[in-house]
Amino acid sequence: MAVSQFDSEQYTSEAFVESVGAILFRLSRREVCVLHLLNRDEYVLAKGRRNCGESRKDTAVRELMEESGFSCRLLHLDMSTRAPSAVETEQLGDEAHFYTGICEPFNLQLRRLKEGDVKLIWWYIAAVDEDQSFNEGHTGGAEVCRGILQLH
């Protein structure tokens, strides 16, 4: 039996959790939304766990609404990724390729939890739907102060 040349780790379903979040911008005012967790005095970006059967994109939009109170949309970006294009016209090597106008996570964060458990956090870029009203949302039980930081 051949042995892989790559280091690898495997986690059964009870040992990992998958979360999705986004950096949320209000484009018209050049602002970014951050959450202030009052009970920990910590500033964070909105994110949360993916439900069974839910797509990552749907999770991101739902969690942003629940945690920030803002209706939003995920932005299509020009970026490099190792994922193949939606329509493969040729066999590409396992290397990054540049695409325009794709809606994909720009970052994957691996957070090691207690011994043997991990959290995968997929990050997107999103924009506030400015024609929609603000919704208090639920905060998963956390005391949250929503804030907007002005970008320069």
Rank of each mutant, 00 (worst) to 15 (best):
M1D: 10
E9Y: 12
Q10S: 14
T12Y: 02
T12R: 03
S13T: 12
A15V: 03
V17L: 03
S19N: 11
A22R: 00
A22V: 03
L24A: 07
L24D: 10
R29V: 06
V32T: 10
V32L: 01
V34Q: 05
L35W: 07
L35T: 07
H36D: 13
N39D: 15
D41F: 10
D41I: 02
G48A: 06
G48F: 07
G48Y: 06
R49G: 06
N51G: 04
N51D: 12
G53Q: 08
E54K: 03
S55I: 07
D58Y: 04
A60P: 04
V61S: 03
V61R: 05
R62E: 13
G69N: 12
G69A: 03
F70P: 10
C72D: 01
C72Y: 04
L75P: 10
L77P: 01
D78P: 00
D78T: 15
S80N: 04
T81W: 02
V87N: 12
T89I: 09
E90S: 14
Q91T: 13
L92Y: 07
L92R: 14
D94C: 06
A96G: 08
A96K: 09
F98E: 13
E104Q: 08
L108C: 11
L110T: 14
R112Q: 14
R112P: 05
E115L: 08
D117C: 10
D117W: 02
K119E: 15
K119Y: 00
W123G: 01
W123I: 02
Y124N: 05
Y124Q: 05
I125N: 00
A127I: 02
V128Y: 04
D129A: 12
E130Q: 04
N135I: 09
N135P: 00
E136S: 07
G137N: 09
G137Q: 09
H138N: 14
T139F: 01
G140I: 13
G140L: 05
A142N: 13
E143A: 08
E143H: 08
V144P: 05
C145Y: 00
R146S: 03
G147Q: 13
L149A: 12
L149Y: 14
L149P: 01
L151K: 01
